[in-house]
Every structure is written in structure tokens, then in C-alpha cells.
Design a protein around this nucleic acid. Structure first.
Lengths: 221, 221
DNA sequence: GGGTTGTTTTTTGTATACAGTTGACAGTAT
DNA sequence: ATACTGTCAACTGTATACAAAAAACAACCC
């Protein structure tokens, strides 16, 4: 019954993505197309589309006989994802530094102000919204739509990880201050400073995430 | 008749990719699934797979009623691709600097030596092979398989562009010297130097490519 | 008993059939 | 003549049918 707003392939993709990153679908699991199709009540066609996209995201690998196998979400995988984000988003910030107009900067300032309405306490929802808005704004204003798209692909992973890590005021505050540093660099038009601040911000987010989700040896990244 | 080494979807993808980047398929063109299927003598299924992958590569966009439209290969698109490569590959070089062992460095040295067998003239084929080998080696030794995969995705574009740009000894020589600089940095374990050298190398390749393929105003990147 | 080979079952790759939506065109009414 | 409407054609999304390959299992030979 194709009364499509979001195609079935996208639905299956979204649900599988969430299931893998949140740990419901554990690594090493073999994903049979027919099994998934039955579970979702759809045919193999949209399932294949979803699996292809997941393979493109590097979340499933092709085992023997091209069978889809869920890649384990390990500490290493998270590090890899955040390192790629670091490459992409610091590059985007470097490009955006010279291109972001004052209207957009003012808009970010306004959203920023809502994070600490009384100047002291932090509004957790606003803080997360600000984070998403800042990263998105930088991507949109880097002058490279392709780079923006790559950033967006990796941004898909972030909310799920954020949910895994939980919210803590001290960490949100730390991230908030990093956000302000990034905006300062953007406003100053300092490309290298913007890139460095973004690199530091993402590195910091990685450490927090690892601490919460993979509390093993302190770090190695 | 599935006697598949390379699936039909991959064949269609490869040929369409090449056709788009080389300009045989011009931008704005609407790609009907049935038309392409007929042209290649296959059914719509592998064509859909190929189109999905091309959409993932940002080479086609979804027009009205989700119809696939070839994106025009403009100067701007090439700039965008090379900027993303710059982000990814300089990051890979930064990571690889500390991780590349002496055996791999020796292997690269050997390939390097074959580029100028008599120490003066340059072997064009060997030079291109060395280029591919160096970029691939850095990706493989950056310690981040995901980043390596992203690099590889973008490396698919390169040979087609290289063919468009043609070969000239002076340019190959320039690139060769940049390669040596990169290897020096890797050998020294100087991450920042390696990243900077890679950035410069890709930037240089972009300028050459633009000069040849889009000989408009000198540059703006 | 172990290894090899033939068969069966499962799974993927591909083709085709069907349903629903959208754009185009023609015809009619104003 | 123009605007509206109904029909049609083309296209995509989805489901299903079919073919080939591979893995699992069993039987057989040594």
C-alpha cells in the first residue's frame, strides 16, 4: 500500500540503525533478508534497500556469501566515527569561518542565550538543541554542500549516542562553553581557530561518551 | 543469469559513475529506471541499486516525484569533492604518521624508485600507480578502517578525473615531489607536517584539474 | 572412522507483476 | 480564448516469482 511519505525502505533503515547503535541488535548477528522482512511485515525489496544503506554507513559487513552481518558497536567503532566527524566538521568549521554572515551569528547567539535563561542554570533540552543547531549551521554555511551532506550523515549517529551517554549538567556546560568558543572563532573569521575549537569539542565529546558507554581503560585515542 | 562475480548492480553503478563524471551523461538529464534498464539489458532492480548508490555519492538528486536527475558536473562540484578529500585524507595522514611501520615505508620507497628509473625521466604509468599506492597505503595505515573506507569512496572519483585532465610530465613530477614530502613526514612521524603536506598535495591536484577541465577564471578555492 | 561426494535447504541476485501517484493532454464549459 | 476537469500514460514503490550459488547434512567409499 504505497501511500508514501517516508518509504518503507527508509522506515526499515531508521529502525535498524537505531537498533544497532543502541545495542539492541548485537554485533555478529546475521541479518537474513527474509527474517527482517517478516519481522517488519514488508517484502524483501525495501529490506535490501535498507541493508545497502546500512552497509554504506559501515554498520553491517558482508560475511560469507554476501550475508549481512551486524558490526559490533565497540569502543573502537565509536572512536572511528568520532575521528571521521572530527575530520569533516573541523574542515567545515575552517571553511565556515569566513562565510558566516552576521545574521546567522545573531541567530546562533539567540539560541545560545536560551540555554542559560537565568545566566546560571542550564536548560538541558536547549543545550542539546543548541548543539545540533550549531553543528548544522556550520555545515550549511561552509559553502560546500557535499561536505555538509557528509557531516549530516555522521550527525545521524549522534542523538543515539547522546541518549546512551545520558545527560549531566557539568558535561553539558563544558560542551556549551566549547560551543561559545567555536562561535567566537567564527565571528572573528579565524579559520584555524574555528577548526581547532571544533576538533577539541568533538574530541571532548568522544571522551565523555567513552567514559559512559565503554568504561574500560581511560583512553587511547 | 546470475553467475555473479560483480553483481549487475555494481556494473551499472560503475558505468553510470564513469558516464556522469566523464561528461557523457550531462547534468539535468532525467534517468528513467526503465530506460536505463533497457539500455543495459537488465531489469529495474539492479538499476535501482545503482541509482541509490549514486544518490549516496551525491551525483544524482531526486527531482519532482522522486525522479532521478543527473547533477551537473561543474567546477563547483569538483571543488567540493576535492575539499572533502582534503578533509579526509589530511586527517588520515595525520593519524598514519605515528603508525606506519618501516616495512611499509620501505615498500613505498621501492615503488617510488620505479617512477624515475634513470633518476631523470618520469614513467607516467608508474607515477600514477605510485600516487594510488601512497594514498591507499596512508588510508590503510591510519588505524581507522572507517576513515579508510570514506577515503576509498572518494578515491573512486580520482581516476576518471585524472583521465579527463590528461598527463603532463611537469605536473606528474610536481605531484611526485609532493609525494616524497608526504613520505618524509610519515617517516619522521610528524603528524601535522604529514597532514599539511597532504592538504597541499590535494589542493595542488585540484588546481591542475580545474585548469584543464574548467578553464575559466583562474581560481577561487 | 574419516574423508569425500551428492543432495537438500537456505539465501541472495534478478526479473517481473501490480498498485498508486503524478504530470500531461484533450475536451468541454464559460 | 481560457480555465477547469476527466482520462490516460509514464513512472516509482512494493511485492512476489524464479534462478543460481553456497552451506549444511547425509550417505557412501576407502
Amino acid at each position: 500500500m504505497p501511500v508514501i511519505r517516508q518509504s518503507l525502505g527508509e522506515v526499515v533503515y531508521d529502525r535498524l540503525l537505531s537498533a544497532i547503535l543502541s545495542g539492541q541488535l548485537v554485533g555478529g548477528n546475521e541479518l537474513s533478508e527474509v527474517t527482517i522482512a517478516d519481522q517488519f511485515g514488508v517484502s524483501r525489496t525495501p529490506v535490501r534497500e535498507a541493508l545497502n544503506r546500512l552497509a554504506g554507513d559501515g554498520l553491517i559487513e558482508n560475511g560469507r556469501n554476501r550475508r549481512a552481518i551486524v558490526r559490533t558497536v565497540t569502543r573502537e567503532m565509536v572512536v572511528e566515527i568520532y575521528q571521521v566527524r572530527q575530520c569533516l566538521e573541523s574542515g567545515a568549521a575552517r571553511l565556515a569561518a569566513g562565510r558566516m554572515n552576521s545574521a546567522e551569528l545573531a541567530r546562533l547567539d539567540a539560541i545560545s542565550a536560551a540555554v542559560r535563561p537565568d545566566g546560571i542554570a542550564i536548560d538541558q533540552n536547549q543545550a542539546l538543541a543548541f548543539d545540533a543547531e550549531l553543528h548544522g549551521s556550520i555545515a550549511r554555511h561552509c559553502g560546500n554542500r557535499r561536505l555538509a551532506e557528509e557531516v549530516r550523515r555522521y550527525t545521524n549517529f549522534v542523538p543515539i549516542f547522546q541518549r546512551l551517554a545520558g545527560r549531566r549538567d557539568d558535561r553539558l556546560l563544558l560542551a556549551y562553553e566549547q560551543h561559545l568558543t567555536i562561535i567566537d572563532a567564527l565571528r572573528a573569521g579565524d579559520a584555524e581557530q574555528a577548526a581547532a575549537a571544533m576538533t577539541h569539542h568533538i574530541q571532548s565529546a568522544l571522551v565523555v561518551l567513552l567514559d559512559d558507554v565503554f568504561p574500560e581503560a581511560p583512553q587511547s585515542a
